[in-house]
């Protein structure tokens, strides 16, 4: 299979607080996209975007999943979790803002740059959330 005739759908479950496994979804996505022969600078952007999405689900949510849809034109990534949602999205998007607990900050997480990294790496970025509901991040990267 090459990137000219692809129609591929990947799905990964991300568990709450599972930091040892975290990074596996994004690593696997990178591996598959590399095998498809996709341009390395695009793969890099997708790797960053999916890693940050994966970590946010593991650290800030009750768990969720990441789906990646690969078409000849674009890569469409959806990170969807089971809550608890974000009260103020504008604030969450600000670089440096983080509610990560100290226990994970000590491991190097919680720089408050995840959402802005995701936005910067995407051609289209959309986050929808509400306190008490789930959070959905949709990122599209053109190939």
């Amino acid at each position: 299979m090459s990137k000219d005739n692809i129609g591929l759908n990947l799905e990964y479950e991300v568990l709450r607080n599972d930091f040892t496994k975290a990074g596996e979804a994004s690593s696997n996505i990178k591996k598959i996209l590399t095998q498809l022969g996709i341009n390395s600078s695009i793969i890099r952007r997708i790797a960053i975007a999916t890693y940050e999405a994966e970590m946010n689900i593991a650290i800030h949510s009750l768990g969720g999943c990441i789906t990646v849809n690969v078409t000849p034109k674009e890569i469409n990534i959806v990170a969807l979790d089971n809550g608890p949602g974000i009260e103020d999205i504008e604030l969450a998007m600000q670089e440096g803002y983080s509610t990560a607990p100290n226990s994970v900050r000590e491991l190097g997480f919680g720089a408050g740059m995840g959402l802005s990294n995701m936005k910067r790496c995407s051609d289209k970025f959309k986050i929808t959330s509400q306190k008490g509901k789930n959070t959905r991040v949709n990122m599209i990267i053109y190939i």
């Binding site: 930091f19 040892t20 975290a22 990074g23 596996e24 994004s26 690593s27 990178k30 890099r44 790797a47 960053i48 890693y51 491991l107 190097g108 997480f109």
Partner: peptide, 16 residues
Amino acid sequence: TIQTHVNIVAVASLVD
């Protein structure tokens, strides 16, 4: 770095 948690490997690998 002074981080030694397993995630440093994922990070390093993802950004080559």
